[in-house]
Write a protein that binds this DNA or RNA. Structure first.
Length: 264
DNA sequence: AAAGATTTCAACCGCAGTCTT
DNA sequence: TAAGACTGCGGTTGAAATCTT
Protein backbone atom coordinates (compact mmCIF):
# COMPACT_ATOMS: atom_id res chain seq x y z
CA UNK A 1 0.00 0.00 0.00
CA UNK A 2 1.12 3.51 -0.65
CA UNK A 3 2.54 4.78 2.64
CA UNK A 4 0.55 7.93 2.18
CA UNK A 5 -2.59 5.94 2.64
CA UNK A 6 -1.70 5.17 6.25
CA UNK A 7 0.09 8.36 7.11
CA UNK A 8 -2.22 10.82 5.50
CA UNK A 9 -5.35 8.81 4.97
CA UNK A 10 -5.15 9.03 1.24
CA UNK A 11 -7.19 6.10 0.12
CA UNK A 12 -6.72 4.69 -3.31
CA UNK A 13 -10.14 6.00 -4.10
CA UNK A 14 -9.32 9.44 -2.82
CA UNK A 15 -10.02 11.10 -6.12
CA UNK A 16 -13.39 9.49 -6.39
CA UNK A 17 -14.17 10.34 -2.77
CA UNK A 18 -13.25 13.95 -3.31
CA UNK A 19 -15.43 13.95 -6.37
CA UNK A 20 -18.23 12.63 -4.23
CA UNK A 21 -17.53 15.31 -1.63
CA UNK A 22 -16.77 13.08 1.34
CA UNK A 23 -13.66 11.29 2.39
CA UNK A 24 -13.53 7.80 3.81
CA UNK A 25 -10.92 5.68 5.49
CA UNK A 26 -8.44 6.46 8.24
CA UNK A 27 -8.50 9.88 9.79
CA UNK A 28 -5.51 12.16 9.50
CA UNK A 29 -3.94 14.19 12.28
CA UNK A 30 -5.26 17.34 10.68
CA UNK A 31 -8.80 16.00 10.53
CA UNK A 32 -8.65 14.92 14.16
CA UNK A 33 -7.42 18.33 15.14
CA UNK A 34 -10.15 20.11 13.20
CA UNK A 35 -12.87 17.97 14.70
CA UNK A 36 -11.54 18.22 18.25
CA UNK A 37 -11.23 21.95 17.93
CA UNK A 38 -14.76 22.31 16.66
CA UNK A 39 -16.30 20.16 19.36
CA UNK A 40 -14.36 21.89 22.10
CA UNK A 41 -15.80 25.16 20.91
CA UNK A 42 -19.32 24.06 20.07
CA UNK A 43 -19.94 20.87 21.99
CA UNK A 44 -21.05 17.47 20.82
CA UNK A 45 -23.99 16.81 18.58
CA UNK A 46 -25.10 18.33 15.29
CA UNK A 47 -22.62 16.11 13.55
CA UNK A 48 -23.47 17.06 10.02
CA UNK A 49 -23.10 20.70 10.92
CA UNK A 50 -19.85 19.94 12.68
CA UNK A 51 -18.53 18.13 9.63
CA UNK A 52 -19.35 21.09 7.40
CA UNK A 53 -18.30 23.89 9.69
CA UNK A 54 -15.09 22.23 10.78
CA UNK A 55 -14.06 22.02 7.16
CA UNK A 56 -14.10 18.25 7.09
CA UNK A 57 -15.05 16.34 3.98
CA UNK A 58 -16.58 13.69 6.17
CA UNK A 59 -20.09 12.59 6.91
CA UNK A 60 -21.62 13.51 10.21
CA UNK A 61 -21.75 9.86 11.08
CA UNK A 62 -18.06 9.49 10.50
CA UNK A 63 -17.33 12.51 12.69
CA UNK A 64 -19.51 11.21 15.47
CA UNK A 65 -17.84 7.82 15.36
CA UNK A 66 -14.37 9.30 15.36
CA UNK A 67 -15.17 11.53 18.30
CA UNK A 68 -16.89 8.91 20.42
CA UNK A 69 -14.44 6.11 19.78
CA UNK A 70 -11.23 8.02 19.64
CA UNK A 71 -11.02 11.73 20.26
CA UNK A 72 -13.37 12.13 23.17
CA UNK A 73 -11.55 12.94 26.43
CA UNK A 74 -11.20 10.09 28.91
CA UNK A 75 -11.54 7.39 26.34
CA UNK A 76 -9.66 4.49 27.81
CA UNK A 77 -7.45 2.68 25.41
CA UNK A 78 -5.40 -0.40 25.85
CA UNK A 79 -6.16 -3.76 27.29
CA UNK A 80 -9.40 -4.61 28.95
CA UNK A 81 -8.73 -5.08 32.65
CA UNK A 82 -9.67 -8.10 34.63
CA UNK A 83 -12.54 -6.33 36.30
CA UNK A 84 -13.78 -5.04 33.00
CA UNK A 85 -13.74 -8.58 31.67
CA UNK A 86 -15.81 -9.70 34.59
CA UNK A 87 -18.27 -6.93 34.09
CA UNK A 88 -18.60 -7.45 30.36
CA UNK A 89 -19.29 -11.13 30.81
CA UNK A 90 -21.93 -10.43 33.38
CA UNK A 91 -23.61 -7.63 31.50
CA UNK A 92 -23.62 -9.53 28.24
CA UNK A 93 -25.28 -12.47 29.93
CA UNK A 94 -28.00 -10.08 30.99
CA UNK A 95 -28.37 -7.76 28.05
CA UNK A 96 -26.96 -9.63 25.09
CA UNK A 97 -25.39 -7.59 22.30
CA UNK A 98 -26.50 -4.28 23.73
CA UNK A 99 -23.03 -2.92 23.36
CA UNK A 100 -23.78 0.72 23.99
CA UNK A 101 -25.67 -0.18 27.14
CA UNK A 102 -22.82 -2.36 28.33
CA UNK A 103 -20.33 0.37 27.48
CA UNK A 104 -22.20 2.80 29.72
CA UNK A 105 -21.22 0.64 32.67
CA UNK A 106 -17.55 0.72 31.75
CA UNK A 107 -16.26 4.27 32.09
CA UNK A 108 -14.16 5.32 29.17
CA UNK A 109 -14.84 2.23 27.10
CA UNK A 110 -16.72 2.47 23.85
CA UNK A 111 -19.36 0.16 22.48
CA UNK A 112 -17.13 -0.50 19.51
CA UNK A 113 -14.24 -1.56 21.69
CA UNK A 114 -16.37 -3.86 23.80
CA UNK A 115 -17.96 -5.32 20.71
CA UNK A 116 -14.55 -6.00 19.22
CA UNK A 117 -13.35 -7.46 22.48
CA UNK A 118 -16.30 -9.79 22.64
CA UNK A 119 -16.00 -10.97 19.09
CA UNK A 120 -12.25 -11.46 19.07
CA UNK A 121 -11.59 -12.70 22.60
CA UNK A 122 -14.69 -14.10 24.21
CA UNK A 123 -16.14 -15.78 21.16
CA UNK A 124 -12.74 -17.22 20.43
CA UNK A 125 -12.63 -18.62 23.94
CA UNK A 126 -16.04 -20.15 23.49
CA UNK A 127 -14.97 -21.64 20.21
CA UNK A 128 -11.95 -23.22 21.85
CA UNK A 129 -14.22 -24.64 24.49
CA UNK A 130 -16.39 -25.88 21.66
CA UNK A 131 -19.52 -24.33 23.00
CA UNK A 132 -21.67 -21.32 22.38
CA UNK A 133 -21.08 -18.19 24.47
CA UNK A 134 -24.68 -18.38 25.59
CA UNK A 135 -24.64 -22.05 26.33
CA UNK A 136 -24.95 -23.35 29.83
CA UNK A 137 -21.64 -25.14 29.42
CA UNK A 138 -19.81 -21.92 28.66
CA UNK A 139 -21.44 -20.03 31.50
CA UNK A 140 -20.70 -22.82 33.93
CA UNK A 141 -17.11 -22.87 32.84
CA UNK A 142 -16.88 -19.13 33.26
CA UNK A 143 -18.35 -19.34 36.70
CA UNK A 144 -16.05 -21.91 38.18
CA UNK A 145 -12.39 -21.57 37.34
CA UNK A 146 -10.37 -22.68 40.34
CA UNK A 147 -6.78 -21.79 41.01
CA UNK A 148 -5.35 -23.96 43.66
CA UNK A 149 -2.13 -22.04 43.99
CA UNK A 150 -3.88 -18.82 44.88
CA UNK A 151 -6.63 -20.50 46.88
CA UNK A 152 -9.12 -18.10 45.38
CA UNK A 153 -12.12 -19.11 43.37
CA UNK A 154 -13.63 -16.51 41.12
CA UNK A 155 -17.20 -16.97 40.07
CA UNK A 156 -17.57 -15.04 36.87
CA UNK A 157 -20.44 -13.20 35.35
CA UNK A 158 -23.80 -14.67 34.64
CA UNK A 159 -26.22 -13.47 37.18
CA UNK A 160 -29.01 -14.20 34.81
CA UNK A 161 -32.03 -13.32 36.81
CA UNK A 162 -30.87 -10.81 39.39
CA UNK A 163 -31.83 -7.21 39.14
CA UNK A 164 -28.70 -5.79 40.72
CA UNK A 165 -26.27 -4.33 38.32
CA UNK A 166 -23.39 -6.07 39.95
CA UNK A 167 -23.71 -9.61 41.07
CA UNK A 168 -22.32 -9.73 44.60
CA UNK A 169 -21.01 -13.18 43.82
CA UNK A 170 -18.90 -11.86 41.02
CA UNK A 171 -15.89 -11.26 43.23
CA UNK A 172 -14.12 -13.40 45.74
CA UNK A 173 -14.97 -12.76 49.33
CA UNK A 174 -11.75 -11.03 50.22
CA UNK A 175 -12.92 -7.82 51.75
CA UNK A 176 -16.11 -7.64 53.68
CA UNK A 177 -16.59 -3.95 53.11
CA UNK A 178 -15.20 -3.33 49.67
CA UNK A 179 -17.89 -3.00 47.06
CA UNK A 180 -17.38 -3.68 43.43
CA UNK A 181 -17.83 -0.06 42.54
CA UNK A 182 -15.23 0.84 45.12
CA UNK A 183 -12.78 -1.50 43.59
CA UNK A 184 -13.67 -0.36 40.12
CA UNK A 185 -13.03 3.20 41.13
CA UNK A 186 -9.73 2.15 42.54
CA UNK A 187 -8.97 0.43 39.30
CA UNK A 188 -9.77 3.47 37.27
CA UNK A 189 -7.89 5.88 39.41
CA UNK A 190 -4.80 3.90 40.23
CA UNK A 191 -4.82 0.56 38.51
CA UNK A 192 -5.65 2.21 35.25
CA UNK A 193 -2.18 3.59 35.19
CA UNK A 194 -1.29 0.24 33.88
CA UNK A 195 -3.64 0.50 30.99
CA UNK A 196 -3.42 4.24 30.50
CA UNK A 197 -6.67 5.91 30.00
CA UNK A 198 -5.21 8.39 27.61
CA UNK A 199 -2.95 6.39 25.43
CA UNK A 200 -1.87 7.77 22.10
CA UNK A 201 -4.82 7.20 19.88
CA UNK A 202 -3.27 5.50 16.95
CA UNK A 203 -0.09 3.70 16.16
CA UNK A 204 0.23 5.46 12.87
CA UNK A 205 0.79 8.68 14.77
CA UNK A 206 3.83 7.13 16.33
CA UNK A 207 7.25 7.35 14.88
CA UNK A 208 10.22 5.41 16.22
CA UNK A 209 8.55 4.85 19.53
CA UNK A 210 7.83 8.48 20.22
CA UNK A 211 4.64 10.24 19.46
CA UNK A 212 4.64 12.49 16.48
CA UNK A 213 1.44 14.26 17.27
CA UNK A 214 1.98 17.99 16.95
CA UNK A 215 2.11 19.64 20.34
CA UNK A 216 -0.04 22.55 19.47
CA UNK A 217 -3.11 23.88 21.18
CA UNK A 218 -5.43 22.14 18.82
CA UNK A 219 -5.36 18.92 20.76
CA UNK A 220 -7.20 19.20 24.04
CA UNK A 221 -6.08 16.00 25.66
CA UNK A 222 -2.72 15.32 27.17
CA UNK A 223 -1.66 11.89 26.09
CA UNK A 224 0.72 12.90 23.38
CA UNK A 225 2.88 14.80 25.78
CA UNK A 226 4.16 11.55 27.19
CA UNK A 227 5.74 10.57 23.92
CA UNK A 228 5.65 6.95 24.91
CA UNK A 229 3.67 4.20 23.35
CA UNK A 230 2.07 2.48 26.29
CA UNK A 231 -0.04 0.24 24.13
CA UNK A 232 1.95 -2.85 24.90
CA UNK A 233 3.09 -2.15 28.43
CA UNK A 234 0.68 -4.48 30.07
CA UNK A 235 0.42 -6.81 27.14
CA UNK A 236 -0.79 -10.14 28.31
CA UNK A 237 -1.31 -9.07 31.87
CA UNK A 238 -4.98 -9.68 32.11
CA UNK A 239 -6.84 -12.84 31.40
CA UNK A 240 -7.85 -13.13 27.82
CA UNK A 241 -5.39 -10.60 26.59
CA UNK A 242 -2.65 -12.06 24.58
CA UNK A 243 -4.64 -14.74 22.86
CA UNK A 244 -4.53 -17.38 25.52
CA UNK A 245 -5.30 -20.87 24.44
CA UNK A 246 -6.89 -22.19 27.54
CA UNK A 247 -8.69 -21.35 30.70
CA UNK A 248 -5.32 -21.21 32.41
CA UNK A 249 -4.64 -18.18 30.34
CA UNK A 250 -8.09 -16.81 30.89
CA UNK A 251 -7.53 -16.67 34.64
CA UNK A 252 -3.92 -16.87 35.51
CA UNK A 253 -2.30 -16.54 38.85
CA UNK A 254 -1.18 -12.99 38.27
CA UNK A 255 -4.74 -11.98 37.50
CA UNK A 256 -5.87 -13.31 40.82
CA UNK A 257 -3.03 -11.58 42.59
CA UNK A 258 -3.80 -8.30 40.89
CA UNK A 259 -7.48 -8.50 41.66
CA UNK A 260 -6.64 -9.32 45.23
CA UNK A 261 -4.42 -6.25 45.49
CA UNK A 262 -7.17 -4.08 44.10
CA UNK A 263 -9.58 -5.27 46.70
CA UNK A 264 -7.31 -4.93 49.71
C1' DA B 1 14.23 -14.39 6.09
C1' DA B 2 10.09 -15.01 3.73
C1' DA B 3 5.50 -16.45 3.01
C1' DG B 4 1.20 -17.59 4.63
C1' DA B 5 -2.17 -17.64 8.36
C1' DT B 6 -4.35 -15.44 12.02
C1' DT B 7 -5.67 -11.66 14.96
C1' DT B 8 -6.91 -7.05 15.91
C1' DC B 9 -9.54 -2.99 15.65
C1' DA B 10 -10.81 1.40 13.18
C1' DA B 11 -14.18 2.55 10.19
C1' DC B 12 -18.12 1.77 7.19
C1' DC B 13 -22.92 0.22 6.27
C1' DG B 14 -27.77 -0.35 6.82
C1' DC B 15 -31.53 0.04 9.67
C1' DA B 16 -34.57 2.01 13.10
C1' DG B 17 -35.93 5.61 16.10
C1' DT B 18 -36.31 10.54 16.87
C1' DC B 19 -36.55 15.24 15.59
C1' DT B 20 -37.81 19.10 12.64
C1' DT B 21 -40.39 21.45 9.31
C1' DT C 1 -49.65 14.03 9.69
C1' DA C 2 -46.14 13.17 6.35
C1' DA C 3 -41.64 13.54 4.70
C1' DG C 4 -37.01 14.34 5.05
C1' DA C 5 -32.97 14.99 8.01
C1' DC C 6 -30.44 13.58 11.78
C1' DT C 7 -28.72 10.42 15.26
C1' DG C 8 -27.49 6.15 17.44
C1' DC C 9 -26.90 1.26 17.34
C1' DG C 10 -25.31 -3.34 16.03
C1' DG C 11 -23.23 -6.02 12.34
C1' DT C 12 -19.62 -6.36 9.12
C1' DT C 13 -15.44 -5.42 6.54
C1' DG C 14 -10.70 -4.95 5.38
C1' DA C 15 -5.98 -3.48 6.08
C1' DA C 16 -2.19 -3.51 9.37
C1' DA C 17 0.07 -5.98 12.80
C1' DT C 18 1.47 -10.14 14.68
C1' DC C 19 2.30 -14.95 14.81
C1' DT C 20 3.54 -19.41 12.83
C1' DT C 21 5.77 -22.43 9.76
Amino acid sequence: MDPRVREHGLASTETEEQDMGTRKGPWTIEEDSLLAHYINNHGEGHWNTAARCAGLNRTGKSCRLRWLNYLRPNVRRGNITLQEQLLILQLHSRWGNRWSKIAQQLPGRTDNEIKNYWRTRVQKQAKQLKCDVNSKQFRDTMRTPTYHSSQIDIPVAASESGSDLIDPNILPDISGSCTFSDSLDAQVSSGSDLTHSQNPPSSHYMQNGSCSYPENDSVPWGWYEHGVDMQGVDEGRYGLIGGGDSMENFWNEEDIWFLHQQLM
